[in-house]
Design a protein around this nucleic acid. Structure first.
Lengths: 206, 206
DNA sequence: TAATATTTTAACCATTTGGTTAAATCGATT
DNA sequence: AATCGATTTAACCAAATGGTTAAAATATTA
C-alpha cells in the first residue's frame, strides 16, 4: 500500500520535469523512462500514450496555478495592504514556479480545447478575480483609492511580477547585467512594484 | 538578378513562420519544404542543416528585436513625453511581433552560446538603454522626476507592454473575457500604462 | 502454498525524420 | 547552339521515435 503508486508517481514527476523543460515536442518517452528507472513499456502501462501523459502533466500544472491564485486575500485588512499581499503571493509563486508558467504559456494554444473541457469538469473557476474586483470597485466608490480600471491594475501587477522571471535570460543578454546585478534587481523588485502601485492608487492629498 | 535569391528567401520566410509557431523541436523540414514549394533537398542546398536554418532565423529574429529598440528617442522633448514615446514604441513592436518575442523567449536558453557569439561579432549592442538611463539620472538630479531605479522603471514598463500579449490566451482562459472585452483591454492599455508611469514619476506638488 | 492479479521486462515493429546522392533541368555566357 | 555553373528533383538511407507484445517476475489473496 502506498508503494503501489510509487512507480506511477515517479514517472509523473520525471515527466513533469521533462515536459516543463523541453515541451511536448522536445520531450522523449525514452528519456522519461530512463530518468524514472523504468522500461519504456512501463510508461505505456501507466499512460496509454505520450499525449495522455502530457495531458496529465498539463492539467496538474494548471491546477497548480489555480490553487496558488485562488483566495489570495479574504481578511479585512485595508485594500492597499491587500494589494501588497497579492504582489507578495504572485512573486512567491513565480519564484518557485517559473517553469510551470512558461510551460503553460507555451502549450496552452495547442491545447485550448482540452483545457477548456477539463477546466469546466473540474470546476476550477477563479473566484479570486471577481472578489478582488468587487472590493476594488467598492473602495473606489468610497474614495479610498483612485478610480482606475481593475482589469488593468491586476493584469499589470501580474505582468510586472511574472514577466521579469520569464524573460530573465533575455534581460541578462540585453542589459549585460552581472549575476549580482540581476540578483539585486530581483531583490528590490517587490518593493518597487508595491510603491509603483501605491502611487497609482493613492489619492493626491488635497 | 534579384530573382536569384527568390527561393532562398522564400525558404527563410516559411521557415521563420514555422519556427515561430512550433519552435525548433516542433518544426519539420518537410513542412517547410512543402510550404516553400521546394524539395527537401533544396532546403539542404541552401542551408546545410535544420540547425543552420534555425540559427539564421534566430539571428534575424534577434536583429529584428534590436533594430526596433535601438534609438527610440533622441529628440529633446521632455522626459515624460519621451517615456510615452518609448511605451508607444514597445506596444507597436509587440503588436506585430508577438510570435517573434515568444520565439526568442522560448529558444534563447538552449542557444545562449550561439547568441552571445553572434551578438558580439555583429556588434549589436544596445546603446538605447545606456542613453535613456543617463537621461533619467540627469532628470532625477534636476528634480524633474522622482528618484527611482531606472532599471526597474524600464523593465517594468517592458513587462507591462509585452506580457499581456504573450499571455493573451492564458488571460482569456482565466478571466473568461469575451473578444470585445479583451479588445477593449488592449485598446485602453496604452493610456493606462502611461498614466501608471506618470504617477510613479511625477513629483507631488508641494 | 497454489492461484490470481499486478507490475516489469526484453525484443520488436512501423513510421517519421533529418539528411544524402547522383542525375536532370534551367540560365546565363561565349 | 554549346558550355558551364547554378538550381531542382526523385529516390534512398540510417537513426530516432512512439508504440506493441508476449513472457517473466513480483505481489496479493485464498
Amino acid at each position: 500500500m502506498g508503494e503501489k503508486l510509487k512507480t506511477k508517481d515517479k514517472i509523473l514527476t520525471v515527466a513533469t520535469e521533462i515536459f516543463y523543460n523541453k515541451g511536448f515536442n522536445g520531450a522523449r518517452m525514452q528519456e522519461i523512462a530512463n530518468l524514472a528507472n523504468v522500461n519504456k513499456a512501463a510508461l505505456h502501462y501507466y499512460f496509454s500514450s505520450k499525449q495522455e501523459l502530457f495531458e496529465v502533466v498539463l492539467l496538474n500544472s494548471f491546477k497548480n496555478l489555480f490553487i496558488s491564485f485562488d483566495k489570495v486575500v479574504n481578511s479585512n485588512m485595508p485594500i492597499i495592504e491587500k494589494i501588497d499581499v497579492i504582489i507578495e503571493k504572485y512573486l512567491d509563486f513565480i519564484k518557485t514556479n517559473t517553469q510551470n508558467i512558461k510551460f503553460i504559456l507555451n502549450e496552452i494554444e495547442n491545447n485550448l480545447a482540452f483545457i477548456q473541457k477539463n477546466m469546466e469538469t473540474n470546476s476550477m473557476k477563479v473566484k479570486f478575480f471577481d472578489e478582488i474586483f468587487e472590493e476594488l470597485h467598492l473602495e473606489m466608490e468610497k474614495g479610498t483609492i483612485k478610480k482606475i480600471n481593475p482589469n488593468h491594475l491586476l493584469i499589470n501587477i501580474i505582468s510586472m511580477c511574472i514577466f521579469p522571471f520569464i524573460a530573465k535570460p533575455l534581460i541578462m543578454e540585453i542589459t549585460q547585467f552581472s549575476q549580482e546585478e540581476i540578483q539585486h534587481f530581483f531583490d528590490e523588485q517587490e518593493n518597487f512594484i508595491k510603491k509603483f502601485v501605491h502611487n497609482a492608487l493613492q489619492q493626491k492629498r488635497e
